[in-house]
Design a protein around this nucleic acid. Structure first.
Length: 399
DNA sequence: CGAGATTCATGTGAAGTATACCTTTAGGCTTAA
DNA sequence: AAGCCTAAAGGTATACTTCACATGAATCTCGTA
């Protein structure tokens, strides 16, 4: 056993990789230059530039669908500015926060706490009055005498969950600050979400707006080609692979992140299968794997109650439409089996809503007329994945 | 036959509760001078 | 006397419960043709 494992590692080392620089395809990677987004980069830079002269820039609201380069552009521009600020010793600080990473910034308290932590303050996970955390944050900002730019990614998630007062409070901070100023950059991929906001908040957040249109198939190809040339060794990509990736992604409203991921995973699959080149079939496989990993990951990291609820839903997998009441009955049985204290239907109803938000299930409120009113739940997940999710759930709940 | 009332099963909002965690404060004990 | 530790008091955020009311179309009711 030991020997064969050693052998495995040895051949693994000897086997030459298809990749020359895998990181280039990973989503956190920020390339040296951004193609097909020159305009947006310029716009954002123009808007934010005043802070280099220690004047307050306008707040900016950026929106566009997923994978249209919003985050990338924001990061790119902020990196450049930070660098410039550093070399010229300018008092500028940019803080980037992704509001979607739950547990990091999905309530007012958590967001402000996270902001304060970015400034090196220790904030407990609970216990302090939110007001107090604001004070700490305020203090941290005032003492540093700087231009602060807060980049709030996926801001729609935050507002949906915690209301728009947060943004109002943040924009209002400037009135009280003497030395420093705060500029907000909100990033959202939900175009409609500003409609639900208080008009005052809306207008203060979007003093400037930048819209990111989706990439078209050609632009996607350019991007993929560019990255692929860094990421892979020469000649490992078969003809048509890039085209297919781009086509896939273009179909999904021009999502470049997805296209890149597709390419990377396809590469990994090919490599693992000891293939010398990446073929079109690998792309199909990659597509499946990505979807699977994404869902399994979400499912596994859910709290127990959410898992139990989901398990109850999956119990009905064959049926098209499932109703809340049925789910709750099954859910209670599951709780008993696993030794979990069952929650009330009220709460389970909310949990179903949360699962819907996560995109694992689709829940729609319908009225069945004489037979009451309920949520109609269905699974947008491919059939083949369900057994895998079920076993992942069973494992993590100890069934 | 059709308009309006009824009804069902659950959605949904508000308010209350339990839990986990925080800071502050006041003793009580230890320690060093 | 000063310093440090601990426990109690007083406070908050979050997840959840309880209570009460809101919904909205299928079905029922009843007046009318």
């Amino acid at each position: 056993m030991e020997k064969s494992l050693k052998g495995f590692f040895e051949t693994f080392l000897k086997k030459d990789s298809l990749f020359s620089e895998r990181a280039v395809l990973q989503s956190q990677y920020t390339p040296e230059e951004i193609i097909h987004r020159e305009n947006e980069v310029k716009q954002l830079a123009n808007i934010l530039a005043p802070c280099l002269r220690v004047e307050k820039p306008s707040n900016v609201f950026i929106y566009g669908k997923t994978g249209t380069g919003k985050t990338l552009t924001a990061k790119y521009v902020s990196n450049q500015m930070m660098e410039l600020a550093k070399t010229n010793n300018l008092p500028v600080k940019i803080i980037y926060i992704n509001c979607k990473l739950s547990k990091v910034a999905d309530t007012e308290y958590r967001l402000v706490a996270q902001l304060a932590r970015e400034l090196g303050k220790e904030i407990p996970p609970t216990g302090l009055p939110t007001e107090e955390v604001y004070k700490i944050f305020n203090h941290a900002i005032t003492t540093q005498k700087m231009q602060f730019i807060l980049v709030l990614d996926e801001i729609d998630q935050l507002v949906k969950k915690a209301g728009d007062e947060i943004i109002y409070n943040l924009t209002r901070m400037n009135a009280e600050l003497k030395n420093s100023q705060v500029t907000l950059v909100g990033i959202s991929n939900d175009l409609m979400f500003t409609d639900t906001m208080d008009p005052r908040v809306k207008s203060s957040l979007s003093e400037e707006e930048i819209v990111f249109p989706p990439y078209n198939a050609l632009q996607l190809q350019d991007i993929l080609k560019k990255r692929a040339s860094f990421a892979f060794k020469q000649g490992v990509l078969s003809d048509g692979v890039i085209g297919k990736c781009a086509a896939y992604a273009a179909r999904e409203h021009g999502d470049a992140r997805r296209a890149l991921e597709l390419l990377r995973v396809a590469g990994e699959i090919a490599e693992r299968a000891n293939n010398k080149t990446i073929n079109i079939e690998h792309i199909d496989e990659a597509e499946e794997k990505i979807e699977k990993d994404r869902i399994i990951d979400i499912v596994k990291t859910q709290p127990k109650q959410q898992q139990a609820t989901l398990y109850a839903i999956l119990y009905f997998k064959k049926r098209e439409a499932i109703f809340t009441g049925e789910i709750y009955d099954v859910y209670k049985q599951i709780c008993e089996k696993v030794g979990l204290r069952p929650l009330t239907q009220r709460r389970v109803s909310d949990i179903i809503g949360e699962l819907d938000m996560l995109g694992i299930i689709t829940a729609k409120v319908i009225s069945k007329g004489r037979f009451g009113r309920t949520r109609e739940i269905s699974l947008p997940i491919p059939e083949t994945l369900i057994p895998k999710i079920v076993s992942a759930l069973e494992q993590s709940m100890g069934l």
